[in-house]
Design a protein around this nucleic acid. Structure first.
Lengths: 160, 160
DNA sequence: AAACTAAATTAGACGCGACTAACTCTCGGG
DNA sequence: CCCGAGAGTTAGTCGCGTCTAATTTAGTTT
């Protein structure tokens, strides 16, 4: 589907963004990003990682030297950092609602590639406002809890 | 990337969901879904539509008869309806922040395939609470507006 | 009823991002 | 110093979702 507007950083696919996010995280935590670690963290084969790294190099997002390490260019680093920021922002937002961590993680993973700058800023502020208004988040959590209870067994019987 | 949890209705790709959403919308508004209309609305070629419809038939989501129309099965209709619901929910949520319509549309289009049931419910309630609390949305809009103004020219000069 | 036109379909191709299998390189221990 | 294990790479394939070009069908129009 084409369309897009301001939302379009489009030259980078969701897959490329995932790699850059991961490489960025590894460099931050370990000081370097090895193929084997990227592969493990992303749950894919090493061959796929090498492939993509070569493509990222072609696109000027990393600097790649065969059998040597991989380094982010400023452009690549910006993308990695931005995606991480979106990731953290969405996670924080969703954590207000008492959802289970696996669900939050999966949804964030899916959504983080599809959020424009403007929407990101809006949701950041929403998250802040929500934190200044704990009773709103509380009410939502309660309403959600109530939503699931109807399926529970009526509390009167032998639980064994 | 694997993972997924409750978020996984995974047997249907994002593309398939887009088609089902579109077919559902066309059937609702016109009573039938023609290949040429689906193609136009999705911005892709008719050949691609025929292809995908055959695949959707194989997967039991539509009933396809060559050169005749296409009809949703109950399973397909459910998916189409659900996606539409997520679409509308996300749109409503984002409309609170004064973003421009094209941005909202693009972001929603991207996000709607990546939201679990639980997250959807949570965001629905958030949207409701936001509507009961217009001053919160107002404050966010104002803060966003303020965020952009710093780039404006200082209001003292010749505007021509 | 024949012809024309618009819709639908088929055939064949492509790019992306993943895979496996086979190889090549690097580097630390002996 | 060399050599083996583990890291990295290459080659070749696959499925998905798209495309264009060519073909077939259906539904007017006359």
């Amino acid at each position: 589907m084409p369309v897009r507007s301001e939302s379009s950083r489009s030259l980078e696919s969701a897959a490329m963004e995932d790699y850059l996010e991961q490489i960025h995280a590894l460099i931050e935590s370990k000081g370097y990003a090895r193929v084997v670690d990227i592969a493990a963290n992303l749950g894919i084969s090493q061959a796929s990682v090498t492939n993509m790294i070569q493509k990222l190099d072609t696109n000027g997002l990393v600097i790649y030297e065969k059998y040597r390490g991989t380094v982010l260019t400023p452009a690549g680093e910006k993308i990695g950092r931005d995606i991480r920021k979106r990731h953290d922002m969405l996670t924080k937002l969703l954590q207000n609602f008492g959802l289970d961590e696996a669900t939050i993680y999966a949804d964030v993973e899916g959504m983080e590639h599809h959020i424009s700058q403007s929407t990101q800023r809006a949701l950041e502020m929403l998250t802040e406002e929500l934190e200044n208004n704990p009773q709103m988040a509380r009410r939502i959590r309660q309403r959600l809890a109530r939503l699931r209870l109807p399926a529970e067994p009526p509390l009167n019987g032998v639980t064994e």
